[in-house]
Design a protein around this nucleic acid. Structure first.
Lengths: 189, 189
DNA sequence: GTACAATGGTATCGAATCGATACTATCTAT
DNA sequence: ATAGATAGTATCGATTCGATACCATTGTAC
């Protein structure tokens, strides 16, 4: 039984539709759209190099203009605050408010997905591996940014007294290495 | 390394965003939105019990109203034709035009996905298994219709001279058993 | 050092999605 | 025959999204 690209395409589309509907359901009490929730979760999980409108746009696969509106909504709901970067004054830094952090934590786990993953027939471990592999393959095929964490980044370099980002030459706290980074790159074979 | 529900959630979201962007790109020359393409592909691949607006709505995880608009667009582009069902005159039957069939065939394979799946690091077989398993688990958890094919349906019954749908008691041609069915149900335990 | 391109971001417009609601038509159960 | 369920459409308002234009800041070429 050969597994065709079309059948995988179909399955992915069904998964995406279900996930989207569930996200919509979950965001409804807060008056949040799926895209707004995606942005919120990203900002809750990205590092200090990656909390800009541009990065959000790339992560969501959207344009700057659309993302700007999405962020405006989150700001108007007091879920995030904007601040001008001091080094590069074109750049806006996005920080979740405590209300935003709380909401992100709530929205991060989808009940539907939780209960699906807890079923005996599923091995979350190998599922995660396969999904991750597909994502990396797609990103490689399309030349997109990978948005991974330091753990799998080719720039991560051990130094005396801790870890270092080889790109910025800055020291990284341990928690930071588990956050999503816009500059993440896979090791070269 | 425990694989958390959140990280799977995140990966799925990224996959969905990439797929959606790619579908958008692909549909642009035709002036079709992603949802319209999804509906087109569904109608190209569903059986005669499942080609109604209601079924499309359930498949896409959307509402009747929204789906009605989606279908209106496809109709105005001469990609599908509506016909009243003669048995139940509330029901509208949707049939792709030859133009619609052709376009569906074109849009069914995403270049990005094809090239990702062809990479050595990926085993399309086990990926398909894992994805299918996750989809079934989600459908079970949420009580959604499964939209599978006869091959995995508990209603499929062998009869003299061919196959039979145990629900409608009608004979099925072999090709039909490979199409998506709205009445599909997984075997009980 | 001054022009000029590149980059980050916002504003605005029009087309489309989407949920909600209300409505019509048809079928089914009693 | 009547009530209720079901299939579908129409319409409204909020939001998404791409496209375009625009502004501010930074980087680069000369």
């Amino acid at each position: 039984m050969r597994m065709s690209a079309r059948s995988i395409h179909e399955t992915l589309e069904r998964l995406a539709a279900l996930l989207r509907a569930e996200t919509r359901r979950l965001g409804k009490p807060e008056g949040l759209q799926p895209v707004q929730i995606d942005a919120l979760l990203y900002l809750d999980h990205c590092n200090r190099y990656s909390n800009t409108p541009q990065a959000v746009a790339e992560y969501l696969g959207s344009t700057k203009g659309t993302t700007s509106q999405t962020l405006k909504v989150l700001e108007s709901k007091n879920l995030l605050a904007k601040a001008q970067d001091q080094r590069d004054r074109r750049v806006v830094r996005l920080h979740l408010t405590s209300k935003g952090r709380t909401l992100a934590t709530t929205l991060a786990n989808l009940p539907l997905l939780e209960s699906a993953l807890s079923q005996d027939s599923l091995d979350a471990e190998s599922l995660g591996e396969e999904l991750g592999g597909l994502l990396r393959a797609l990103q490689r095929a399309g030349g997109f940014r990978t948005f991974g964490t330091c753990r799998t980044c080719r720039f991560l370099t051990p130094a005396e007294g801790g870890l270092l980002c080889g790109l910025t030459r800055e020291a990284l706290r341990l928690e930071e290495t588990q956050q999503i980074c816009r500059e993440h790159e896979e090791p070269r074979d």
